[in-house]
């Protein structure tokens, strides 16, 4: 019958109209900014630098290896390496970045910098309300703005942060064991030399 399909369509719309007053499923609006959807754990927006201790400069994990700068597709990371070295989390002397800028107006949130970093120093943040009206540098984030503590990382990506911490702890344990083994071997060698000396001196 002519008009049957039209009536079926109108019944469908009516069902949605009535349903929007009764069920949440038929009214999916979230009125931002008063209401917000809970952030999904894995969401990524722009990178940030992780630091471990209370001092953001000393505890910065980044050693200025510049791998992320090379691999970044739109080339939005700018790093200047330092001339001197400072000890890192496991005690090894490393360089550090004197300048670490990310231009977030260019960054495409691809996460490749995170993937290639060997030191778990750069991770993805999920803050997106970064609009500014300063167009000549308001979107160029420098080292201080990018540095955020490890506790913050745990807050936004708990599972990932736990895995990273486990990995770092494992590496530290291995480095400690190696250092301990080396120290033991050196001490044993020194003791052997010391023990061998009086015999040789008695000649």
């Amino acid at each position: 019958m002519l008009g049957e399909g039209i009536l079926k369509g109108m019944a469908e719309t009516a069902r949605n109209f009535v349903g929007s007053f009764v069920s949440k499923e038929r009214l999916t609006t979230v009125e931002y900014p008063e209401e917000r959807i809970a952030a999904i754990e894995n969401a990524r927006v722009f990178p940030f630098l992780v630091y471990d201790t209370a001092d953001w400069e000393a505890g910065l994990r980044c050693v200025a290896c510049q791998i992320c700068e090379k691999e970044c597709p739109p080339k939005c990371i700018f790093i200047d390496k330092s001339k001197d070295k400072k000890p890192d989390a496991i005690g090894k002397q490393q360089f550090y970045p004197t300048r670490f800028d990310i231009d977030i107006s260019v960054c495409m949130s691809c996460q490749i910098c995170v993937e290639v970093c060997p030191f778990e120093a750069i991770k993805m943040d999920n803050e997106f309300e970064l609009a500014t009206d300063d167009r000549f540098g308001g979107l160029l984030l420098d080292r201080k703005q990018l540095a955020k503590p490890n506790e913050y990382y745990h807050q936004i990506h708990p599972t990932e942060a736990a895995a990273v911490d486990a990995r770092l702890a494992e590496e530290k344990a291995k480095a400690d064991a190696k250092a301990k083994g080396a120290a033991d071997a050196a001490a044993a060698k020194a003791a052997a030399v010391l023990a061998a000396k009086p015999e040789g001196a008695g000649d």
Binding site: T13, N16, F17, S20, F21, R26, L27, T28, T29, E31
Partner: peptide, 13 residues
Amino acid sequence: KGLGRMQNRLGPN
């Protein structure tokens, strides 16, 4: 408002 509700959204509010 009516069109909005039919389309599963709020109209102007």
